[in-house]
Amino acid sequence: MSSFKEKTQSFIALPIAKALIALIGILIIGVLFDGGGSFFKLNTHTEMLGFVSRYAILAFGMTLVIITGGIDLSVGSVLGLSAVAFSLLTIHFGVPGYLALPICVALGLACGLVSGTLIGRFKLQPFIVTLAMMVFARGAAKVLSGGQKVSTAVQIDGEYVFVEEPAIFETLSGKVFGDTIFTATIIAALVAFLCWILLSRLRFGRYLYAIGGNEESARLSGIPVIKQS
Rank of each mutant, 00 (worst) to 15 (best):
N214L: 06
L118A: 07
F169K: 03
T44K: 01
R219I: 10
K227S: 15
T152V: 12
E6I: 08
A17V: 11
S145G: 14
V75T: 06
T130V: 04
P102W: 00
V129I: 09
I67D: 10
G94C: 12
L42V: 15
G205E: 08
T130L: 02
D179M: 01
F33P: 06
D72N: 15
Y207M: 14
V154E: 07
L109F: 02
I66F: 00
F93R: 13
I103E: 05
A17D: 13
G25T: 12
Q228C: 15
E165Y: 03
H92Y: 00
S145D: 13
K7E: 15
R206W: 11
L220A: 10
P15Y: 11
S38V: 15
M48F: 09
I128C: 04
D34R: 08
Q148F: 06
F4N: 15
Y209R: 14
V31W: 10
G30E: 05
G37R: 08
Q148R: 11
F182G: 08
D72C: 10
G69D: 11
G178H: 03
G205N: 07
E165A: 12
H45A: 11
P96Y: 06
N214W: 00
S38Y: 10
G94D: 13
A192M: 13
I226G: 01
I223V: 15
A22T: 15
A85C: 12
V52E: 03
I186K: 01
A188E: 03
D72Y: 04
A59Y: 02
Q9Y: 11
A56Y: 00
P166T: 03
E159T: 13
E164Y: 01
A132M: 14
A189G: 07
F127S: 11
V154K: 01
V154A: 04
R203N: 14
E215Y: 00
L49Y: 00
E215M: 13
R54A: 14
R54Y: 13
Q228A: 15
I66S: 05
F127P: 10
C104P: 06
F182K: 13
L109S: 07
G146V: 03
L190H: 01
G147H: 02
G80L: 02
I168D: 05
A132Y: 02
V31E: 12
K18L: 12
V191A: 00
L73V: 08
Q228G: 08
A188C: 05
A141K: 11
D34T: 11
T8Q: 10
G222A: 05
L109R: 02
L64V: 15
Y160N: 08
R201H: 14
F204G: 07
G30F: 02
E216N: 09
S2W: 04
F4S: 15
L172Y: 01
G69S: 09
S87L: 02
S3Q: 14
F177H: 01
V84P: 06
T183M: 04
I223P: 03
I71P: 05
W196D: 12
I26P: 03
V75S: 01
L42R: 06
S115E: 03
